[in-house]
């Protein structure tokens, strides 16, 4: 257990048990994680992997400490276990159909529930065509530790906006949550580069599931393996690997 100033630890590896001390200027007033920000200092926000411990922050995940202005801190860790978070877009597998709700496996500790009315254009009369075993892409509208998570395949205005049942073909693969986050960073162009090689459809869920579909089975397999390999490749290595495929396949 060690106490480090939080500014020094940004970008460094932190381990569970590390105590991060907030800078002195922010210690003048008592630290408040919620509530209105008092005095002139910004409100400190703890993201995943950080816990408040009196006036300091306690790390409870290992990974890289990240920071965003004004005072948002979180730990970027590599893990595979997904914990539902409200607002996350995820890929789930429909496991049971009971009455007016579907149970959906999202890889969390508990299955999420999905109302049959939470699809675009669904009414009591016009039920959506969802079978057990289908893949659905949806968003969490309720996710907290004491309640069953709840999903929806429409946004607040009732539009699907890309969500809903995913087609019957294509391949779903499971990757680490770190890779999914990497793929979803706006300035990351892995997916775009892949699209240039093979035209394909891809759905990325925050729960570590990716669904891909390319023209042929062979291409889908290549895409799936390339996506998995991207986890440990630097941008240069990736370009090198991708260039090989763009030469050979097309």
């Amino acid at each position: 257990m060690s106490a480090v100033s939080i500014e020094d630890a940004v970008g460094q590896i932190v381990l569970p048990g590390d105590v991060l001390v907030l800078s002195t200027q922010s210690r003048d007033a008592p630290l408040s994680l919620s509530g209105p920000s008092t005095s002139n200092r910004p409100r400190v926000v703890c993201g995943p992997g950080l816990m408040r411990q009196e006036d300091d922050l306690l790390v409870n995940k290992c990974g890289l400490l990240r920071h965003r202005d004004p005072a948002i801190y979180w730990v970027d860790s590599q893990q595979k276990r997904y914990v539902p978070v409200k607002g996350d877009h995820v890929i789930g597998i429909v496991t049971t159909k009971s009455g007016d709700i579907f149970k959906v496996d999202v890889g969390g500790s508990e299955q999420a529930s999905l109302s049959y009315l939470a699809f675009e254009g669904a009414t009591k009369k016009n039920r959506p065509n969802v079978k057990v075993g289908d893949l659905v892409y949806g968003q969490f509208i309720v996710a907290n530790k004491d309640m069953e998570p709840e999903m929806a395949c429409i946004d607040s205005s009732g539009k699907a906006n890309g969500k809903g049942v995913i087609g019957q073909d294509g391949l779903m693969l499971k990757v680490s949550l770190g890779l999914v986050r990497k793929l979803l960073i706006p300035q990351n162009d892995i997916v775009q580069e892949l699209m240039n090689i093979f035209p394909m459809e891809v759905v990325i869920g925050m729960n570590g599931r990716i669904w891909v579909k390319a023209k042929t089975v062979q291409q889908t397999l290549i895409v799936a393996n390339l996506l998995e390999a991207c986890e440990y490749l630097t941008a240069e290595q990736r370009k090198h690997v991708f260039s090989k495929f763009s030469d050979n396949v097309i």
Partner: peptide, 8 residues
């Protein structure tokens, strides 16, 4: 985790 229809 169950196996989805599309994977099968």
């Amino acid at each position: 985790t169950p196996l989805s229809n599309c994977e099968r």
